[in-house]
Write a protein that binds this DNA or RNA. Structure first.
Lengths: 197, 197
DNA sequence: GGTAAAAACTAGTCTTGTTAGTTCTAGTCG
DNA sequence: CGACTAGAACTAACAAGACTAGTTTTTACC
């Protein structure tokens, strides 16, 4: 009866915390309601349904991740910026595994909600501006951005899925991978003649 | 009453097909049972529970993917092998999105089941042997393998999540990314002195 | 103090996951 | 050929969850 002061954001946050604790697919409406000391049905005043909630968690994660990356790359350039960028991204995924997996679901997010979310857009901008130091021209710049993001995202995903057998510490491969990426960006290969792309 | 001839493999296959059609997280015991013309409870004779079923789908996917990659790289070397390898991987993910996403779940697969599955192990071996043409020594070889896998896996993931805005076709970035990867592998950077890794 | 919007609730439906216990079926052995 | 058994599939049942409709607060404003 006492009003709990719910808002869409508070529900989302509770869901996000839960996701980090027990895994995204154990985030149920009931569990979130319990955590907030509220009945399940009450949540539906703030969030359309479970799918919507997941989408909101994903957007929250994107925002938070972007902020961390922005902090980590501020005032840096070249290799420093690259390393800061990648490490911030990876650390976010480690700190918030549940939120991060929410990011990976094929987009079915409410377009209206997506429009007012800065995170994803700003993340892309950050990547572009970080890579400007490497003096790439379009379309190479876009390709490089996508390669960079793919590598980081993929590494995190494989790491989480247990894809790296115990032999060599993932950490070491990560560092060397960034090294390699850095030199690749410094010597981005020219088009082979005959390649249409 | 008529015996349906269920086996763990047939249940897994039905689950996999369903996953590709409606998405992995709409794969329910009930839905699989319906598809097989059987009651839900009957499935539990062949599969421990839903989580187990998902694990089996993941292993099936790993096996299938490995086979495709093996075919695509057989008798090839260098850039040809690299491109064949990556394209086979990506094509499998496109052809079987549901199965592929099953692959990404943090490992909680029955160890006993995992032990007798060749797919994952063989996939790693294939990657190593494919990269031998590039004449890398350990630990660089392992780092390169991981970088390669990360890039491919990450690209697929971002693509599926709608991470690439419409501007430039993902396909073009993919091709150029493989180009870049190829030259990177040919000129893998030496250690910076002072780097412990 | 009265009122209206919205917050939270109660109650109920439907679907799903899972277990326990039962019946049927196929092949095996006397 | 008929009894026997392993296990395949079933029925029944329960708990938990997603979601809806309708009802009771609560709050803030007039």
């Amino acid at each position: 009866m006492a009003r709990a002061g719910l808002t869409a954001d508070r529900v989302t946050l509770a869901g996000a915390e839960l996701a980090d604790e027990v895994g995204l697919d154990h985030v149920t409406m009931s569990a979130v309601a319990r955590r907030l000391g509220v009945k399940d049905a009450s949540l539906y005043a703030h969030v359309r349904n479970l799918e919507d909630l997941r989408g909101r968690i994903a957007l929250l994660a994107a925002d938070e991740k972007t902020i961390r990356i922005a902090e980590a790359t501020a005032g840096r350039a070249g290799r420093d910026a690259l390393v800061g960028f990648a490490n911030a991204w990876r650390k976010y995924a480690h700190d918030h595994p549940g939120r991060y997996t929410a990011t990976q679901t094929p987009i079915q997010i409410d377009p209206e909600l997506l429009a007012q979310a800065l995170g994803p857009r700003r993340a892309v901008e950050l990547t572009y501006s970080m890579l400007r130091a490497y003096a790439l021209d379009e379309p190479d710049l876009t390709d490089a951005v996508r390669l960079l993001r793919s590598m980081i995202h993929g590494f995190i995903g494989l790491e989480a899925a247990g894809g790296f057998a115990h032999a060599r510490p993932a950490e070491d491969s990560w560092i060397r991978g960034l090294d390699a990426l850095h030199t690749l960006l410094e010597h981005w290969p020219a088009h082979h003649e005959g390649d249409p792309a």
